[in-house]
């Protein structure tokens, strides 16, 4: 074995060799297949979203701004519902990033810890842990929109939009 009985001596070389060996021999995720699946499932979710958009605009005669909000609400509802029914993770197993990236994935990442930590109570369990997965998305999403908004505001003042 690399390093063998020399555990106490400097065996960083052996360790590096071992890490390279593990890196080389361990089976890898099928990247190409994963990307195709993510594209197909992610695309399908967007098509469904677009169908709702058309429904709300053309059939229910909503204006564009309201229709956009209604589509987001609908997709979040569907994501949370499918999470509750244990269907979303089953699709996600094949879809990968295709189900994580769209807004339904955000719903899943909030609904799943909410369900799981309910047993520790509604305050210290469900509501405290609800954003344990989605928290970083909110923190950096909101922070970056503030930064972008500030830059846009400066641009308008300086250049005069």
């Amino acid at each position: 074995m690399p390093g063998g009985n020399n555990q106490n001596k400097d065996n960083s070389g052996y360790k590096k060799d071992y890490q390279d060996y593990i890196e080389k021999t361990s089976p890898k995720s099928p990247l190409f297949k994963d990307m195709i699946m993510a594209f197909l499932f992610g695309g399908a979710i967007c098509v469904i979203g677009q169908a709702f958009m058309n429904l709300y605009k053309d059939v229910l005669n909503m204006d564009a701004e309201n229709a956009k909000i209604a589509v987001s609400v609908t997709m979040v509802f569907i994501g949370a519902l499918l999470t509750g029914l244990d269907i979303y993770p089953k699709i996600a197993k094949y879809a990968g990033a295709g189900t994580i990236v769209p807004i339904t994935g955000f719903a899943n990442s909030v609904a799943s810890p909410a369900m799981e930590f309910k047993r520790e109570g509604l305050v210290l369990g469900m509501s405290a842990k609800m954003f344990v997965v989605a928290g970083p998305v909110l923190v950096y999403g909101i922070t970056s929109s503030v930064v972008v908004g500030f830059i846009y505001w400066l641009y308008k003042i300086l250049i005069g939009g």
Partner: peptide
């Protein structure tokens, strides 16, 4: 799973290892 990884209903993929 809940201690070491993600909630059960979270839609993630596992690696082959």
């Amino acid at each position: 799973e809940r201690q070491y990884r993600n909630p059960l209903e979270y839609g993630g993929q596992r690696t082959p290892t």
